[in-house]
Design a protein around this nucleic acid. Structure first.
Lengths: 327, 327
DNA sequence: AACCACGTTCGAAGCGCTTCGATTCAATTC
DNA sequence: GAATTGAATCGAAGCGCTTCGAACGTGGTT
């Protein structure tokens, strides 16, 4: 293994000088810098990360905590992870993969053994046991998903409220005056899960503001329940010409049921979904996408800012983008 | 931060003794072991991973190299990753996530900076630039996906040949005597991609052995091509009552086209797929699953064996499991 | 001519852990 | 009772890096 001492000897300088060339923490004359650089190249020197971490107390690794259980939409998680790794590498960081299964203990472990400099935590619940632990650990952290606005912790998410409103605005501009809303299963709203409520709130407020008639109903997961709720909607909101769906699990079923009821989609009922892009793409529905890649990038950038001693805003909401697929 | 010296002082022993308690590399009397353990608990000591790596030249981290680009089936990747992390943790290892984008340079980097002890590489091609690099780096590595049988490198994969045969056997047992096969796009076979060929080989050999009539055709990705190839198959193999599909991208389309041609599935044509489980589940097709979770576990276990100086077999093939979904 | 200041470079002291030879002490042996 | 063993423990020397104070020249100042 090539060490910093080898490089120093080869370049005829002290090890510390090599270190300063590498880190730029002290001025080095152009000439020595060249010579050292040359030696590094020639010897193929790569600093030992363990030694660096020990001496410098920075690991250049960040922990990515992902919910890898079933139930979450895996392609979205994956896209997020991909974006995180790519962005992290641009900042010369590596990414340690931690599963949510390990819970708070996992955070304690990787922080306590000094494996990582900071945390990126996806899918944080409102009453998440990890939130107090993160605060206690005192390492930079960025939370993602359904952010609890938590003092000292930084959160990123899609602006679901704006997303709900955006759907209404889009439909109103197309001339619709009566719009239905199908949301998550009832239990999700009861649980006070943040993102579901915020979408609904955005939807309702926009409907009010625009003066359109609307009805919102929760949608359970199974086929019969969907059929029933679609029926209810059509019966209650007889002049409904548009429907906003915020429930990726039943989206396909909803369209199926509408067609079974004799409504053409989108001619009779325009459907706008809030869901991962590929799903909408597949079903050819207009949608507000869940921008996993942008979220990942932004999350890393916020974390890096914190690592560099800055204090980024506690909450970053990404503006929703609507993709029209009426073609 | 609590160091080993703090623990030693608290327990009234030398730091080295604490180390021996922790690693078990030298005998320690039961009494001291107790006392030291107690101090560790009381002080909440967690060894500094950087220091450990520096002194011990083991990081307890393994690199997981994943293809996070579009095109690969993300849920499978995710399930694999999940299984890898879980199994790694059982061996007290952490997992560093590396994207295939970084290519061979990425491997050089994490090995050169001593960030990881070994590699788990998914989706390795036959002519992969990373294979020679892995050999050159000389670190334990386990390849996954379409293994090149490569001296010194260890490979794991589903036994695709057996999978092809298994489908035939299953169908023959159900009484089918004429079986079609739809495979990957033609280009994949031309590229000599291993897994596609092996499945086909297994299928053909089994058909021969069982004395059933069969025709195999490649399937391109777009709708029209699928319609055409299904048409060809029905025309050429007029008595075909069963079809094996090894092409997850067009599986749905194939079923659709069969129905469009007036064949009921599975009554008129029994379809068996070789594809990720959830896809088959969704389409309610009998299938040979791609056991991502088992692959992940096995891959880690093989890697751990290599790290512990053992020499596991160069190639591990997992037996295919067929799930009947004729209900 | 002696001095100061500044940009560069050096040397040495850690960072927290492992590991190896040396030491201790009690139990055994002749 | 002196010598020999062996288990348990200690002490110190690294592992490869960063960082801080000191030293070194050079050029400009008085």
């Amino acid at each position: 293994m090539v060490t910093i001492v080898d490089v120093a000897r080869h370049a005829g300088v002290a090890p510390s000088t090599v270190s300063y060339v590498l880190t730029g923490k002290r001025p080095v004359s152009a000439e020595t810098r060249m010579r050292v650089g040359e030696s590094i190249r020639l010897l193929g020197y790569q600093p030992h990360s363990g030694a660096k971490a020990l001496a410098g107390s920075r690991t250049n690794v960040l922990a990515l905590v992902l919910p890898l259980r079933e139930g979450v939409h895996l392609p979205v998680v994956m896209r997020f992870a991909s974006s995180v790794v790519t962005t992290a590498r641009e900042h010369d960081m590596d990414v340690l993969l931690v599963t949510a299964d390990e819970g708070a203990a996992g955070l304690r472990r990787v922080a306590g053994t000094a494996r990582v400099d900071g945390f990126l935590v996806m899918d944080v619940g409102l009453e998440d046991e990890r939130v107090p632990v993160l605060r206690e650990l005192g390492r930079p952290a960025v939370l993602l998903g359904h952010p609890t606005v938590a003092n000292g912790l930084t959160c990123v998410d899609l602006d679901f409220e704006a997303a709900g409103a955006r759907c209404v605005d889009h439909l109103v501009e197309l001339g619709h005056r009566t719009i239905g809303f199908l949301g998550a299963p009832g239990a999700v709203y009861a649980r006070n899960t943040g993102f579901a409520q915020r979408t609904l709130a955005g939807f309702s407020a926009a409907a009010m503001r625009r003066g359109v008639a609307s009805t919102a109903l929760p949608a359970e997961r199974h086929r019969d329940a969907v059929r029933a709720v679609v029926g209810t909607l059509l019966r209650e909101l007889t002049r409904m010409t548009a429907l906003v769906v915020h429930n990726e699990a039943v989206l396909g079923l909803v369209v199926e049921c509408l067609r079974a009821e004799g409504r053409r989609v989108p001619e009779d009922v325009a459907v706008v979904a809030i869901c991962p892009d590929e799903l909408a793409e597949q079903l050819r529905l207009t949608s507000v996408r869940l921008p996993a890649d942008v979220l990942g990038r932004r999350a890393v950038e916020l974390l890096m800012a914190k690592l560099n001693g800055q204090q980024p805003p506690a909450l970053t909401l990404l503006p929703p983008k609507l993709f029209s697929r009426t073609g």
